[in-house]
């Protein structure tokens, strides 16, 4: 299985994440999007007429775009259907998050790519839109935490919702969108980064190691006065 991949692409990172978590053997084919514009070459356009990474080429089929690849990988390599649930409710909720992820990609994701090429943003629409979305995600996660839920879809384990939403949220500060006002998102990011076999990309740091099960003697914070 070969992944046509660009290091800085959040879309490609979604696929790299799931490949790593599900321990799927694969080969990376680097596509020099910037500055090489290899994605506009005739060979690549033959693979994907949209001229976009990621593209996954397996013996069975060729898939274009992160969502298609994520769905196929989950159905094909996750027999317990954890990452793409089967039950009607979680399946539908998960799809809803894939839509949010697409909105994030189109807005803040595109803004980030523009800025990271050293170009200036045409306007602030994308970043304002990002703040609106992040507010909604933060609110959702805050209430989820109250219910004892750690993840976007109310299940005891993460799903494709995490895989699809994490990259653009974790990279949004590169687009000038600060996460200081989204504490529930920041905590969720720690949880996502502690998923087993989670993998990093440039621009994302590892989370603090989880706390040991037996806590140290508890003391109380006191006034310094």
């Amino acid at each position: 299985m070969r992944l046509f991949d660009y290091e800085y692409s959040a879309e490609c990172y979604k696929v790299r994440l799931l490949l790593s978590i599900l321990e799927i053997d694969h080969e990376i084919v680097p596509v020099d999007v910037h500055p090489g514009r290899e994605n506009e070459s005739a060979e690549f356009l033959a693979l994907n007429v949209l001229g976009e990474v990621p593209v996954l080429v397996s013996d069975e089929l060729i898939l274009r775009g992160a969502n298609a690849i994520l769905v196929w990988l989950s159905r094909r390599f996750d027999p317990e259907a954890k990452w793409l649930p089967n039950e009607p409710m979680p399946a539908a909720v998960c799809q809803g998050w894939l839509t949010i992820a697409d909105r994030l990609a189109a807005g803040v994701g595109t803004a980030r790519m523009t800025l990271s090429r050293g170009e200036t943003l045409p306007d602030k629409r994308a970043t304002s839109e990002a703040h609106r979305l992040l507010r909604a995600v933060d609110e959702h996660l805050w209430f989820a935490e109250r219910r004892g839920d750690d993840w976007l879809v109310p299940l005891p384990h993460p799903t494709l919702a995490e895989i699809a939403c994490f990259p653009d949220i974790a990279l949004c500060e590169e687009a000038g969108v600060s996460r200081i006002d989204y504490p529930a998102i920041r905590r969720w990011m720690d949880r996502v980064r502690r998923i087993e076999r989670f993998t990093l990309m440039s621009g994302i740091f590892p989370a603090s190691p989880p706390a040991p099960r037996t806590p140290v003697n508890q003391t109380q914070t006191e006034s310094l006065s």
Binding site: E7, P30, V31, D32, S116, E173, E174, S202
Partner: peptide, 17 residues
Amino acid sequence: DSEMRRFQQLIFGQDKP
């Protein structure tokens, strides 16, 4: 060239944040 670029971009992308 692409592979060398990718490596350097990976490194510099880690410095960026």
